[in-house]
Amino acid sequence: MFGDSIFAAMSVLLFTIIVLLGAFVAGLVGSLTGLGGGVIIIPLLTLVLGVDIHYAIGASIISVIATSSGSAAAYVKEGITNIRIGMFLEIATTISAIIGAVVTVYINPSYIAIIFGLILLFSAAMMIRKKIDHSDNDTSGRLAVFLKLNGTYPTENGMQNYAVHNVIGGFLMMFVAGIISGLLGIGSGALKVIAMDNIMRIPFKVSTTTSNFMMGVTAAASAIVYLHRGQIDPGIAMPVALGVLTGATVGSKILVKTKTDKLKIIFAVVVAFLALQMIYNGLTGRL
């Protein structure tokens, strides 16, 4: 966006401070919008600071683990994570995340930037779209019964039963989500929502927390591959992880108090702009 010449010579101290502040904002926005910090920190590192996208991916995945594990404790209080759904789908996401993390260095960084931009655009669209709860209690799916995926969750009117549909479809979609997560170092929450809400028709309350449960495990699987390859550089990972986690924690506190509908539209525009920048820089070969 600004070219990397301005920031070509930067001291460790200055770099740390800038990334720390940027990561804080990324964590804050990521938490308010539900997009996650990763999708915002990667454009920041690559477009603004001229960091190689492979380093940005490595740092981002660390922030994904931190935020998802950190917020899990809060989700647990609501007590609606379906560990069986999570564990079963993790078969797909861990394998595919590792595949994604292994192949990512063999792909031209320009293509990665373009894929990233497209996923970012898709996430922005998903963010402002009206969510429709497709859940019901038709427990006729044989695979869901065999895998004991159907469950209950507490509501104001007592326990509510729900049924899981199209297990194979959801599993395949999760495989795609895992590949994207491994390739780009993001949680790919938007794709997980498609798999759980739209394909498997799990109620929101359950899908949100279960997706969060899976995100940490999936990210850990690909993080190990990144670590071994040297993509997790301590000088970047440190300010990114600390900044994003702090931002996300502050964001979750604000979230309880404010209505975010209007905020979401503003952020969607910002995110779409970042996405187009990534695609443009990818197409012109500048990333």
Binding site: A8, V12, T16, V51, D52, V105, G230, Q231, M238
Partner: peptide, 30 residues
């Protein structure tokens, strides 16, 4: 990570960063 960050900054704060090209060979502590 925070403690490590303080130690890292204390000793390396004035070094120049160069993250413009990923190089898996020069990576330490992997």
């Amino acid at each position: 990570v925070f403690i490590g960050g303080l130690v890292y900054l204390a000793f390396n704060h004035s070094e120049m960063v160069n993250y413009s090209h990923f190089d898996s060979v020069k990576a330490g502590f992997s």
